[in-house]
Design a binder for these strands. Structure first.
Length: 154
DNA sequence: GCCAACGTTGGC
DNA sequence: GCCAACGTTGGC
C-alpha cells in the first residue's frame, strides 16, 4: 500500500465535486508532467491512499481523503482538440499521458498549508518543500499517519 | 499580479 | 548533449 498527495484546483474539482461525482469517482486527467505521470503508471496500486489537496485557491490545504480506484490508462483529453489538455504530439497508438481513477473516501476539516508548515511531524512532506510544483507526490506511511493524527486535532 | 522554482523546447 | 529562453505552477 502506497500513499500520495494529489493537488486539485477546487474550481476544477474540489473534494465536494468528488463526493458528488458518479460513483464518487473521477478520472484524474490533465497531468502533463512526466514525473507525475510515472508515479501514476509505476507507483499507484488499487486502494492506495490519497491526500486530496486544494491548490491555487484562497485556502490551500488538505481537504479530504480519497483512494486509487482505477489503475493508469490513457488520458482521453490529450486527443481532444477542444480540451485545454490537448496534446497534438500524442497519438492513440502511443499515448503520452495517463490517468488513474480516484474515489472519494471522506471530507475532512481543512488542514491548511499554514498548519501543515507549522507541524514538525510533516516537515519531510514533499509538497512543503520550496519550489515543489509536482501535482502528485509520494507520501510515506509515517507522513500519512501524521496527517491523520493532525486531522484528529482539528 | 509578482516572482521563485524548475520543466520543456529547440538551436547549435 | 549543452544551455538559454520560455512557459507553467502556485503561494503570497
Amino acid at each position: 500500500m502506497n500513499y500520495w498527495l494529489m493537488k486539485s484546483e477546487p474550481d476544477e474539482c474540489s473534494i465536494d465535486t468528488l463526493a458528488q461525482a458518479p460513483a464518487q469517482t473521477v478520472p484524474w486527467i490533465g497531468v502533463r508532467n512526466y514525473q507525475a505521470r510515472n508515479f501514476m503508471r509505476d507507483g499507484m496500486r488499487l486502494g492506495d491512499g490519497v491526500l486530496f489537496y486544494h491548490s491555487s485557491c484562497p485556502e490551500p490545504g488538505i481537504a479530504g481523503l480519497a483512494e486509487v480506484s482505477g489503475l493508469a490508462y490513457p488520458d482521453a483529453s490529450q486527443f481532444d482538440a477542444q480540451s485545454p489538455y490537448f496534446d497534438p504530439k500524442s497519438t492513440p497508438e502511443a499515448p503520452r499521458w495517463l490517468n488513474v481513477d480516484v474515489r472519494y473516501v471522506r471530507k475532512t476539516a481543512l488542514l491548511s498549508l499554514k498548519q501543515m508548515r507549522a507541524s514538525p511531524t510533516l516537515a519531510s512532506l514533499r509538497v512543503l518543500h520550496a519550489g515543489n510544483r509536482l501535482s502528485i507526490t509520494p507520501v510515506t506511511a509515517q507522513e500519512w499517519q501524521a496527517v491523520l493524527a493532525l486531522l484528529e486535532t482539528l
